[in-house]
Design a protein around this nucleic acid. Structure first.
Length: 499
RNA sequence: GGCGCGUUGGUGUAACUGGUUAACACGCCGCCCUCUCAAGGCGGAGAGCACGGGUUCGAGUCCCGUACGCGCUACCA
């Protein structure tokens, strides 16, 4: 059997949409699973949005997700000549005809509506369909403008089997004579995809369900061109919570893949989440499993696991903490706390570098200490950003981190006794030989008992003094990694904040 | 309007060729753990499978109809 060849064919919109990313992922998985070839082709047939900057966003998104392609990127516009040749071939073989109807006025703003209205009326038979070849040639030679239309048979129906949606059938009478070539000679989408897919030897067309209906037209084109029809697998769409279209205009940056990169997602985590949107593994072998490594996914991926109903990308607009699908957020947290330390480290390094918190000895002298801090922080991190937000106090030498107002009020200003408890703690810590978790705990508990206060008063006050926060890792561990010098300094500094 | 596709808790999904109280994950609630917050452990609420018919001893699973949603219907892709 010949090698499978699939392609991802986005139009250059300036960013990679989550839906597009999932389409790319499924193509990539299928290619890897079948030892096939994954091709990237930019569908820039629409001259209005043909710009190199528009392509960069797509490439960036794919690179971040690690969806490497074996061939491309190819640009559909580079193949215009071939598309035109194909249209001419179809004209020659009698499968297409010249339509001399004058170009209709178009208004892009209301195009959808006008199309819908126009479609309500019975479509008249195109008079040029029956024009003799001689007259057609003569009028063309005389310079009269025309489009080339495909001649859809009058009687009968066409069908194909979709790998996801099953058998598809459509009457020829429900398919219009589609335009192949515009009057300016520009090839149109349906012709271009077919030509390119033929030329690139695509064996499986895996794409969004929005192309399902048009597939019939394309099948007709393959047949008229005398080429084998590839297999098709259409993917359910990813919708907004209101089941409407998920769009950048309406939903903002949440739809763009690079947003997740910039928000501190681990690529494999997002990939994992995306894979489960519209696909599920064979339940007899992977019943309740949800966490899949990239390797596992490529191993178990199958078109038969794709389902038909649209999926909802669930999020609440305006919720800062849950700004995107909560399951995606959960999965990212899951990855952050369970992936091997050596896998996590480079991600955190990049994150710290971007906040100017990185120091090279975190990879050298301080490596053990650094890992110790990460072990504490990763436990409650949801994104990589948490390493620089909540993590900041651990990496700065001074006190250039934020003191949460509520935390100060609650943990430092609640009890005036802290006015001298804090200095006492500082002194005690300064004298502590074995500055490790257990000794620190013993010391704190001893002082609490001596002074007749709750341990919580001391730990909470210390936490806020050292990190500016009211929440965080176990306090004795925090004190240990912050170290003696910074602990003493921060405790003494915090005294001023006690009311 | 026409044509096509779809419909299992709030969300993502499971339920072999129809057969016990519809399962798992996220989220939500409670309890435990505890120096805080998470995590973790334990438990709970939440769908009777869009609705209505039918076939059958028995249907989420098969058939028909309705509703709703989505897609396509362009000299866009």
């Amino acid at each position: 059997m010949s090698q499978t060849r699939v392609r991802f064919a986005p139009s250059p919109t300036g960013y990679l949409h989550v839906g597009g990313a999932r389409t790319a992922l499924f193509n990539w998985l299928f290619a890897r699973k079948t030892n096939g070839v994954f091709v990237l082709r930019i569908e820039d047939t629409d001259t209005l949005r043909n710009d190199e900057a528009m392509v960069r966003g797509i490439l960036e998104g794919m690179e971040w997700l690690g969806l490497n392609y074996d061939e491309g990127p190819f640009f559909q516009s580079d193949n215009y000549a071939h598309h035109r040749a194909a249209a001419l071939q179809l004209l020659e073989s009698g499968n297409a005809y010249r339509d001399f109807t004058p170009k209709a006025e178009r208004d892009d703003a209301t195009i959808k509506q006008r199309v819908a209205e126009a479609a309500k009326q019975e479509r008249p038979v195109n008079p040029y369909r029956a024009l003799s070849r001689a007259e057609s040639d003569a009028r063309a030679a005389a310079g009269e403008p025309f489009v080339i239309r495909f001649k859809v048979p009058n009687e009968g129906k066409t069908q194909f089997v979709d790998e996801v949606f099953g058998e598809q059938e459509r009457d020829f009478k429900d398919i219009e004579d589609l335009v192949l070539l515009r009057s300016d000679g520009h090839p149109l989408y349906n012709l271009s995809v077919v030509c390119d897919d033929i030329e690139m030897g695509i064996t499986h067309v895996i794409r969004g369900q929005d192309h399902l209906s048009n597939t019939h037209k394309q099948v007709l084109l393959y047949q008229a061109l005398g080429k084998p029809v590839p297999k098709f697998a259409h993917l359910p769409l990813i919708m907004a919570p209101d089941k409407g279209k998920l769009s950048k205009r309406k939903h903002g940056e949440i739809v763009s893949i690079t947003t997740y990169r910039d928000a501190g997602f681990i690529p494999d985590a997002f990939l994992n989440f995306l894979a489960l949107l519209g696909w599920s593994p064979d339940s007899t072998t992977h019943g309740d499993q949800e966490i899949f490594s990239r390797a596992e996914l490529t191993d178990i991926f199958s078109l038969s696991g794709i389902h038909k109903a649209n999926a909802v990308f669930n999020f609440t607009q305006g919720d800062a903490r849950n700004w995107t699908d909560q399951k995606a957020l959960w999965m990212n947290a899951e990855y952050i706390k369970t992936i091997p330390m050596e896998t996590l480290l480079p991600f955190v390094k990049t994150e710290l570098q971007q906040s100017s918190l990185w120091r090279d000895d975190y990879e050298g002298e301080q490596r053990a200490w650094f890992e110790q801090v990460l072990t504490l922080l990763r436990e409650r991190a949801r994104t990589l950003k948490d390493f620089t937000n909540h993590g900041r106090p651990y990496f700065v030498g001074d006190i250039s981190f934020e003191f949460d107002e509520a935390a100060v009020k609650k943990n430092l200003q609640k009890d005036p006794a802290l006015k001298d408890l804090l200095p006492q703690l500082a002194t005690a810590f300064a004298a502590l030989e074995d500055f490790t978790h257990d000794s620190i705990e013993a010391l704190l508990r001893r002082i609490a008992e001596e002074r007749g206060v709750k341990v919580g008063l001391l730990t909470n006050a210390t936490r806020t003094a050292l990190t500016g926060q009211s929440v965080g890792p176990g306090l004795f561990s925090v004190v240990e990694v912050i170290g003696k010098d910074r602990t003493v300094a921060r405790l003494n500094h915090a005294v001023q904040m006690v009311a």
